[in-house]
Design a protein around this nucleic acid. Structure first.
Lengths: 234, 234
DNA sequence: CGTTTCCTTGACATAGTTCAAGTATCGTGG
DNA sequence: CCACGATACTTGAACTATGTCAAGGAAACG
């Protein structure tokens, strides 16, 4: 009974050895021989926007590496409002808490169509005990998640709405070849920035008017990085 | 050339084996024999409020476990405003990034007089390779920091000023025998909550008037947990 | 083509910021 | 031990950014 709500999304068993992302992914440090030690299949899933990879409190028996797409990690407040605490994108790993036997700490929901590999905890544990590189890679992922969390506090939850939106936009195109990006639903952007849907909408509308955002295709925008940076730091 | 700005705070070499906190601290899982493998001294420091344990960008060659006291981890925005992203308290570990060879990611500044043990990276690395319990403990610490970071986003950077202050106060007495606690400077509380010093002051003043906070000793307050919880969730 | 969902915009209310001044607190040195 | 200066806290008044509520329009979907 997997938690892939919308469709049966199973694509088959992943072939890690010939994975096109192998150099950037969690398993970067593995040797040919290591792959023989994988005794449980690593499944590959394709997930449509809106589907849920896992939920808060679920027993966590797998980690996931993201091949493509974007997920949001959501946490809920007692009153039901939700806050998005992180985005998970290509080459990221999520569900690390599984390694500690803890239940998942977030809802992981797909924002943009996603390909994800599902790694059984036992496999990762076994490999990381014999392979120091993988082990080191895991620590690095943990630290990366932590840096990301800190950055969301300082960059995305501090300052005026304009600053926050600008910083979020800049973040979306960082480490990207082009300054073009697809925007998320306003409600989600609001939940990332700690502002309302309306304020988000107004801010983005204003950015469009000022040509800081130029629509190239439906819902795809080219960013005026220079001027957005000016707003972000101001 | 250590970074302990205010005074020479060195207290001597820690005696881990007879440490009164040994069961709750990072080294909980170590066996007697393991301690023989520690070939560099573990120093014990006593730090007055206001002193700095380490700074952003410093070469990170030690982790620290906190025996008593409170530190703040600070991050700066481009415009110079600072945001406190976490508090470090008794039995917490900070500076984990040292294990990855990264420079420290924050300024760690003492809020309340602190006793800290300084663990050389090489010692922790050596021990964690041979001792799976310590290794597991490290992962748990990383995860704990991450959970803390997420909680700060959802609890302390979301909702009205009143809610945030109430949630911070409740957090300060959680896992404490009494509901009594010492408050931080208003400016710091503001930097934790993403609000101004004035708003913080006003909110706390109001809480006092409503007897949600009752001063027992100078700057020590007893909390009306029940009613603060009501405000926090509302 | 109709229905739903999402986005935008307006008008208004308000919580929070800003600036400024006054008061209390704390540590220091005379 | 008191007086002083520095620092932190409190409070007021005016301003403003953002939230709220409501409605209309656009886009997406079956």
């Amino acid at each position: 009974m997997k938690n892939l709500s919308d469709k049966e999304a199973w694509e088959g068993v992943a072939d890690c050895i010939s994975c096109t992302l192998r150099n950037s992914v969690l398993f970067a440090g593995l040797e040919e021989g290591d792959f023989d030690k994988i005794h449980q299949p690593i499944d590959l899933y394709t997930l449509p926007a809106g589907s849920t990879l896992y939920r808060t409190g679920d027993k966590a028996d797998r980690l996931y590496t993201i091949r493509s797409g974007v997920l949001k990690l959501i946490q809920y407040l007692p009153d039901g409002t939700q806050r998005i605490v992180r985005l998970i994108r290509s080459t990221d790993v999520t569900g690390l808490e599984a390694l500690l036997g803890q239940p998942y700490q977030h809802d992981a929901v797909v924002l943009q169509p996603t390909q994800a590999c599902s790694l059984p905890v036992s496999v990762v544990q076994a490999l990381s005990q014999t392979n120091p590189k993988l082990h080191h890679e895991l620590l690095k992922r943990w630290q990366r998640a932590l840096e990301e969390a800190d950055a969301w506090l300082t960059e995305l939850s501090t300052g005026s709405a304009k600053q926050r939106v600008a910083r979020l936009l800049l973040r979306l195109v960082r480490d990207q070849a082009t300054s073009e990006c697809e925007l998320f639903p306003r409600e989600d952007m609001g939940a990332m920035l700690g502002i309302t849907t309306e304020t988000t909408s107004r801010t983005i509308a204003e950015f469009k008017r000022q040509s800081l955002l130029v629509e190239t295709e439906p819902n795809k925008y080219l960013l005026d990085i220079r001027n957005l940076e000016f707003i972000a730091d101001n």
